[in-house]
């Protein structure tokens, strides 16, 4: 299998989809500079640099999608999506419904987020839950290059607006990407490791921290199941419920603020539908209710690390008070 970085896997998926469907176009702040090979192959009309103006970039994507194209808009960093919020939330997310189903909005917005660059809170803010909370939008956040490629292909083919988030900390990590070019359906979690004692449910870079935690737990005789959600909306509720019913112990982990984060939704789902099968309370590990600081050690401290995840799993695996 070829090895690619997540960033290159995104480029590969864009090229494959643009080749397959001439309606796919890509624009954004510097995309024609940074992915110049796309301009070379598909021309300057289909791959464009834009003015620095997230609102009109997103709005143009929404309008073009309604008009029959399949735009991919690169908005660089997740906090910049704040300038595009109206277009994404009020238009892309609502106008299909509000028009009684007359229009659809097959568009993808790409944005990077997460710790790893130490560049501060206006570049690093994990706001994925905001979009999960907004009707009409799908939300994807892959943890490997292979998933990024497969999920991006599905997102581009999807008839709904998809917010596609790229974890900065994973962007330049290499990973194997299969030769087959099939899209991966949105809304399917991946079981990365099977176990019977505790479930570690996550997405983005903390999936890898869960895998490291599972390794160390294994040496202590605790077998952990690691689930990568991959897509946050649709959320693979069946996979979440299945692993919880199997192990009875769940740690949900993400880098985003714990308060009203995706982990809260997972915990609520388990309380509602798997309560009797839980052997211990669900533990959520997430970032603090604070903007992400630039200073390296503080930035790292916002991210649930493998040690903390393993410690939580151990707590759950110890005999619970009656």
């Amino acid at each position: 299998m070829p090895t690619l970085t997540l960033n290159d896997a995104v480029g590969l998926a864009l090229a494959e989809e643009m080749r397959r469907d001439h309606k796919v176009i890509a624009f954004g702040e510097g995309i024609a500079t940074k992915r110049h090979e796309l301009v070379t192959e598909f021309g300057a009309l289909r791959v464009r640099n834009t003015p620095l103006a997230e609102g009109i970039i997103a709005g143009t994507a929404v309008g073009a999608a309604a008009g029959g194209l399949r735009p991919v808009a690169d908005l660089l960093f997740a906090p910049f999506l704040c300038y595009a919020m109206d277009e994404l939330v009020n238009s892309a997310g609502k106008l299909r419904y509000m028009s009684g189903g007359q229009f659809s909005f097959p568009l993808v917005t790409l944005a990077m987020t997460g710790a790893g660059w130490g560049i501060g809170a206006q570049h690093n803010h994990n706001i994925e839950a905001w979009f999960v909370h907004s009707p009409g939008l799908k939300v994807v956040m892959p943890s490997t290059p292979a998933d990024a490629r497969g999920l991006l292909k599905a997102a581009i083919r999807d008839d709904n607006p998809v917010v596609f988030l790229l974890d900065i900390g994973l962007l330049y990590q290499p990973g194997e990407v299969p030769h087959e070019a099939d899209p991966m359906p949105l809304g399917q979690a991946a079981t990365l490791r099977s176990g019977n004692d505790v479930s570690l449910i996550s997405y983005g870079k903390t999936v890898h921290h869960c895998e490291q935690a599972a390794e160390s737990l294994a040496t202590e005789g605790i077998t952990a199941e690691v689930i990568d959600l991959r897509s946050l909306k649709p959320l693979d509720e069946a996979a979440i419920l299945a692993t919880a019913r199997k192990t009875g112990r769940v740690v949900v982990v993400h880098e985003a603020n714990r308060l009203c984060g995706v982990g809260a939704e997972v915990a609520a789902l388990l309380a509602e539908q798997a309560f009797t099968r839980l052997k211990a309370p669900v533990i959520r590990l997430g970032g603090p209710d604070a903007p992400v600081p630039s200073s390296f050690p503080l930035e790292q401290a916002t991210v649930p690390q493998a040690d903390a995840i393993a410690a939580a799993a151990r707590r759950l695996s110890a005999p619970q008070p009656a």
Partner: peptide, 25 residues
């Protein structure tokens, strides 16, 4: 205090009241 890093240094005592790296902020 290390919260900003290079891109958003404000120094109120010098009258540099707000600095933002959100372009247009």
């Amino acid at each position: 205090m290390g919260k900003s890093g290079s891109l958003h240094i404000s120094v109120k005592e010098l009258g540099v009241v707000l600095t933002t790296t959100i372009v247009g902020g």
